[in-house]
Nucleic acid binder design. Structure first.
Lengths: 289, 289
DNA sequence: GTGAAAGCGCTAACAT
DNA sequence: ATGTTAGCGCTTTCAC
């Protein structure tokens, strides 16, 4: 029939079949390689099953995020993977005829399915450990982006861990701003100004934590003797910085694989797992705390 | 008309209009944030013009890369952005009715359009500088993935710079393997074994270079006194490591923007630039050399 | 200018 | 089993 190079028109195919095998994935950022393992794994797994992952990047902007999803919806996706977790998605996905997976957190009121981990417990266990290691005045450093459920849950984890031991929580944050190392340094300075007796800061992200360690070097503060720093994410950065970062490992690749498998099995009707899958995190102690 | 939530079927629209406004982008890897700025910028720019960027990740596998492109072709894309640069693309794209952009390098025999920079000159100027700074025996460290034009051109740049000054090139590499920091350390050890008098290594990538610096710490080698290390890419990692990495800045974000603009203007018929756009790199001297 | 009709290239349901 | 046909939801063209 075709000597070579006949490519079936998937637009026609998808239109007729009423499903496109497109799987949009919306992430808040492509920078910092936070989601890169996740993205890579989702792409790989889905592609092997004939699905096409299509990535959208919201830059932590809920409005844009919503337009993005709306636009993706026009492709009649086979499934959707959301990592933003804004409430605005709920309406758009209401009555969707395809699976909607929220990844990277455990929403209190899920839209449909979830493949996540507890952001609360990630920081809760870190701050408990920090107290066990003898740190007294533990701050929290984060970026306050709108509708960021993940960060908010981490903040609550930190706060709860302190209150359980009768301590008063003090946090510092940068409003908006993209997640950058500079912000980490800024947060450190602010917190130190307001609370000079701070001896440890748990950051909501490795990126911020690494920035803070670099700032400590500039300020002449020894890590962890003068100031302990911890992150969350276990990104590449964390073993490069000196001292290496004590952090929480987040199973990005495994989350990706789990999402992809759920979608593939759902599409074949062979999925028999629960609607919500929780993956574990683990505390990794290195030199910075 | 629609109170809320009517989403036009883009499959039908694209089928009828014979163009989908999908722009596939194929990159070799999502890891290490090498391409993350590029990806983010392409997504953002194209989305604003109603195009949808769809990313595929080849993992440096030419076969898979080709299947990926074939699969993308079935969506009747409005344009295609390629960063792999394998010859196998040429046949698939022959007589394509849409623009094909090769990004991140300057291919000797372009398929169609290119938005790139000179990988040759990136390393050539670095190695020239290294010699100006007094380094005598300069090695080259790289990963030998199949059909990786970018790395090969960087290798040639290093070789040419040495030969121009009458030196003999000695390189070390890892076969296959994904681009990881571990590989950087391995390359360092191999090169040191074979040529103990090496006083500088120019790496084809920041990732390898940072891995090598970490390995130097383990080996008790001072950087740059005992061993100078340079990278290529100017990724986030490069300012975290100690000493900070001397490297070549690659304009990832600008490449992304330029690709997107070319595609948008081409689709409106308002593009009047050249078929090939070359962007510049710049040498950034930090502490590691 | 506005409105009806043809058809994009497939899939799926039906008839043979 | 194989062949035929209707129609997916739009865009575009052509007639009015």
């Amino acid at each position: 029939m075709q000597a070579l190079n006949f490519v079936p028109n998937r637009l026609a195919g998808s239109l007729a079949a009423r499903t496109s095998r497109i799987v949009p994935v919306i992430v808040p950022t492509m920078a910092n390689s936070i989601f890169s393992d996740f993205i890579e794994e989702v792409t790989l797994q889905l592609d092997a099953a004939g699905f096409m992952a299509a990535f959208g990047c919201s830059n932590f902007d809920p409005d844009y995020e919503q337009r993005l999803l709306k636009s993706f919806l026009g492709w009649h996706p086979s499934a959707v993977i959301l990592t933003g977790g804004t409430e605005s998605f709920r309406a758009l996905c209401a009555g969707a005829e395809f699976p909607v997976i929220e990844a990277w957190s455990l929403p209190a009121r899920p839209i449909d399915r979830v493949v996540g981990f507890s952001n609360f417990r990630a920081l809760h266990s870190m701050v408990l450990a920090l107290q066990d290691w003898g740190y007294e005045k533990i701050g929290f450093g984060y970026i306050d982006t709108p509708a960021n459920e993940r960060t908010e849950q981490r903040r609550q984890g930190w706060e709860a861990a302190l209150r359980e031991r009768g301590k008063q929580p003090e946090a510092s944050r940068t409003q908006g701003g993209w997640l950058s190392m500079e912000d980490g340094g800024m947060i450190l300075r602010t917190l130190l100004e307001r609370h000079p007796d701070t001896d440890a800061i748990a950051f909501a992200s490795d990126v911020l934590a690494v920035g803070a360690i670099l700032e400590c070097h500039r300020l002449g503060l020894r890590v962890p003797e003068d100031m302990a720093i911890t992150g969350c994410g276990d990104m590449d950065l964390s073993i490069i910085v000196n001292p290496a970062l004590t952090t929480v490992h987040v199973p990005g690749r495994q989350l990706g694989r789990t999402c992809a498998q759920m979608i593939m099995q759902l599409s074949e009707g062979t999925y028999d797992g629960p609607k919500t899958i929780e993956l574990g995190t683990s505390l990794i102690r290195r030199g910075s705390a």
